[in-house]
Nucleic acid binder design. Structure first.
Lengths: 231, 231
DNA sequence: AACCGTTATCGTCAACAGGACGAAAAGTTC
DNA sequence: GAACTTTTCGTCCTGTTGACGATAACGGTT
């Protein structure tokens, strides 16, 4: 293998959650150069005998403390422009994680701090490396996938109400949805959700039916974003 | 950089086209070990100072002889499971290319032969490395993207008829579509196609209006695949 | 208990989109 | 010219969707 150019390979994570009606991302403040003191996506180098997905899951567990099977983790894209990392030729494989609301994260070894930040308040050029580009790709992927997959359920706990699911859509899409039409559409899409048989208690208003994620992994028909420019 | 594990990075291409009512993929027969004599996706190692997308475009031009701006090229996914390449730890970034029908390719340096093969006739375990998995991902990506993007036009020459676009959909989806409803839907979706002002000549039947690709890169409403199981 | 605010859920109606299919238009082939 | 092929427009009918009224079922207040 000495005949081929040597690269370093990392994984970086776009970890999204919905908390308090805001779409938040897990960021770490870098404790070492380069970009010392800047916010960055959590991530790290891939071991020479480690699978890419395993490395992503390992980093996710390290940063959040949650076991893997919660939420959703998928590959987002790979970024390897020469010069994107001043330490040398580093290719990073970005992963997108969608998680339910969790307790605050713990700082890792290389990170001075780790916290959930609302994506709406992340200014340009605030992030290390090309992480702003990766974040933008993750956001667009998440918004698109809510349309034609049941992945909004990954932002919810195991049992959730239709209203909770609706706030997920409203938060990620930044659009208000009609509660009655949303309820009809979600319960009418086969395999999206299935009733858990229990209801909420203690909240204001009428108790709501609880649901679990259904068996479909593609929505037919899809949940189309409103207010798209049509003819 | 010597402190980090050294990887080799390659690009591999899933190059699809529609020819003679069949979805075809560009494959090369390997002329060197490993997998000597087996069909494989075209690809190669990324230069230490080369961008990933540039490497993909370079390989595409080398194998097909077409300049880049024709068709469509996008990143598909990254595959890096340890052991997928017997030469060592190789991470490959797969790209998906959609091209109009082209003349037969020329064999490259490392390839004994290169040719278009109908995807329907590729048997299991016929491909080198994990290229069968990458091919499956490329096919599914292409099928899905025809639904909500105008990428079917990438399979067509610069000017094309609605009927030509319909055969693209029918071939990629392997489903028959009603010519009248398809015509209404395509011409009614804003930004999908725009008339070129000219008509075909010399064919059988009534001459058809020629169209170019429109300005939209997302279809509203999308072209939904028929015969999906609904309630 | 009576009332009110809040939230969940069901129903109604009109507009629109989409599949099935008839029919006319405009060429080529024999 | 007759037959055939292909494009393009129109019609009918059904199902989906957005706007919104109405009712159900709770907690809190007087």
């Amino acid at each position: 293998m000495t005949e081929y150019p040597p690269f370093a390979v990392t994984v970086d994570l776009v970890v999204l959650t919905v908390r308090e009606d805001e779409l938040c991302i897990l960021l770490v403040r870098r404790g070492v150069p380069p970009y010392h003191g800047r916010w960055a996506l959590p991530g790290g180098f891939v071991g020479i005998d480690e699978d890419l997905a395993d490395a992503a899951a390992r980093e996710l567990t390290e940063e959040t403390g949650v076991p893997e099977p919660i939420g959703h983790l998928e590959q987002l894209g790979t970024y390897g422009t020469p010069g994107r990392d001043p330490r040398g030729r580093v290719v990073t494989v970005a992963y997108l994680a969608l998680l339910p609301d969790l307790p605050p994260p713990v700082a890792g070894t290389d990170a001075a701090a780790a916290d959930w930040l609302p994506v709406s308040r992340i200014a340009d050029a605030e992030l290390a490396f090309d992480h702003d580009v990766i974040l933008a790709a993750g956001l667009e992927r998440a918004r698109a996938k809510l349309e034609y997959t049941p992945l909004a359920t990954a932002f919810c706990p195991a049992e959730f109400t239709i209203a909770r699911l609706r706030t997920v859509y409203e938060t990620v899409w930044n659009r208000q949805l009609d509660p009655r039409n949303f309820h009809r559409k979600v319960t009418g899409t086969p395999g999206f959700v299935e009733p858990a048989g229990r209801v909420t208690e203690g909240d204001r208003g009428r108790p709501a039916q609880l649901y679990r994620r259904g068996s479909a992994d593609l929505l037919h028909p899809p949940m189309l974003r409103p207010s798209v420019t049509r003819g």
